[in-house]
Simulated assay, not measured.
Amino acid sequence: MSQNHYQVLGVPPTAPSADIKRAYRRLATELHPDKHGGDRHYEEQFKAVTVAYGVLSDPDRRAQYDYQLQQATRRAEEQRRTTAQSAGSGPSVYKMPGTPAAGPPLRTRPPAGSRERHYQQRVPRQQVRFNKQDFWLVAGLVCLIFLFGISAKIVMDRVQANLYYADARTAFAKGQWLEAERQLDQALSFRDDHAEALRLRGQLRQDINHDLQAARADYQAALLADAGHALATPEAARLLYRLGRCEAGLHEPAAAELSYCRALTLDTTLAEAYLARGENRLLDLRQTRPALADLRHGRGQLTRAGRPVPLEYLQTEGAALAHLARYEEARATYKLALESQPEDGRTLFLLGRLAQQQGDSASGCEFFRRGAKAGYSYAVAAAAACQ
């Protein structure tokens, strides 16, 4: 009979690793082929000892080998039990109580005739009727299954849209504009009324791609999507402000005016909307006094909040004051603009125009030359006219 690895090394299955190692060293020394002149019998034994030690010295391989031995032992035991049962059992004959050991069976009546043997009682089959109650029950079940399917699809679409939107937010924060737009497109393909995704894609198209037409479409869709929801007022105000900026950039001042007014109705602390409405009223609608009121109100809000006023709005406020012939106030406003950016060509050009309006041509030409040096095209033309 073939031996297992424990029998080859001469150790019990519970032997520790140290005993297995000592047994291997002893047998390897005794059975080494060099000590027996290359005898094939000893060579085979030496190989078996080496293989057994390779398995039992590795804890993982030993555990797997022990499991295989247990399985083989269990199968052998089951086979032995089955063989013993088959050998000890023979054909069994059932005998009724009180039946004699020998002799023909007793009959209590004559055998049944053919008509009796083939008699079957026929039960009339009842006709199945599908009544009105059954119809409504089936119809209700079909409707429930249909509604469940629709609800499951809506829920899964919302989950997928939210996952894509979260990935888009991450890509947008990292400055990965193309990836952010792709993820937003995926989110909107699952749920075209996802207001947050529409707002973010509009912002990306407005600020990064400078596609004002597409950005305006996204902002309008976001407003429609939020029409039936509890939209936070500041968020809606900022959305309307961005919509107004798109409309102003598309040379639609009346639509921009309406969007700015709606934004300020929702949030009167939105300084950016005051400034943008003032710029739109001055440059496009030619409403100087309302424009100046908006520009000063927005600048005051930013100043109280400790936030810087954008340079373009300071320039616009100065232009409104100059248009109203309030030259000293205009000059003071332009000086504030120069403090934030001393060599801005547009501010220098506006100071030159203001000096010309007050009859100081020399100072005007000096401002024009500084603006031309800064690279402002209108200042270059005005400086050339001074020579």
Score class of each variant (00 low, 15 high):
L56Y: 07
A217C: 00
P342T: 08
C143F: 09
L243I: 07
D66N: 09
V142T: 05
E366N: 13
G90K: 13
L178G: 10
G371S: 14
Y42P: 02
A276E: 15
N209S: 12
A87G: 00
L188M: 09
Q79S: 09
L31F: 07
G371F: 08
Y164V: 01
G371P: 03
L31C: 01
K335G: 04
F368N: 07
T99V: 12
D157R: 04
M156I: 10
A84P: 00
L106D: 03
H41K: 05
A291Y: 09
P16F: 01
L178Y: 04
A236Y: 01
A168W: 09
L314P: 12
W177F: 07
G88Y: 08
A330D: 01
E312S: 13
D344V: 10
G90L: 11
K95Q: 11
S340F: 02
I20N: 03
Q287H: 13
L250H: 08
P110S: 06
Y6R: 05
L295Y: 08
V142S: 13
T316R: 12
L354D: 05
P253L: 06
R245G: 09
K174I: 06
R75N: 09
Y313P: 04
C246Y: 11
K21V: 07
A166P: 03
E247R: 15
L258A: 15
Y260A: 03
L311Y: 06
L338D: 00
T50F: 03
G202Y: 07
R216Y: 11
T303G: 02
G228D: 11
D218F: 14
A291H: 01
D192Y: 01
L69G: 01
R107L: 15
A322Q: 14
A362W: 12
G140F: 10
C365N: 14
G278Q: 00
R245D: 12
R158H: 13
D39H: 11
H210G: 01
L178Q: 15
A273F: 09
A337E: 02
L321R: 14
G300F: 06
S86Y: 05
H36S: 01
Q220M: 07
Y94H: 08
R299W: 00
G149I: 09
P59C: 03
L336D: 15
C246V: 13
A152S: 13
L141S: 13
L224Y: 02
P12I: 05
Q68V: 05
A293Y: 05
C143A: 15
R262I: 04
G300C: 08
R61L: 14
L285A: 05
G37Q: 02
L250M: 14
A173I: 11
A254C: 03
Q287N: 12
R61P: 00
E30W: 01
A273H: 10
E181L: 15
Y65P: 05
S2R: 12
A236M: 13
A214I: 00
E179T: 15
Q213N: 07
L282A: 15
R369K: 14
P16M: 02
V309M: 06
A273T: 04
A187T: 13
G345A: 02
T14G: 09
V155A: 01
G306T: 03
A52W: 12
P234Y: 11
V55R: 00
L302V: 06
Q79P: 00
P33N: 02
L184R: 04
C386R: 11
A263N: 08
R80Q: 15
R75V: 06
L350A: 12
A232N: 13
P13M: 02
P111C: 04
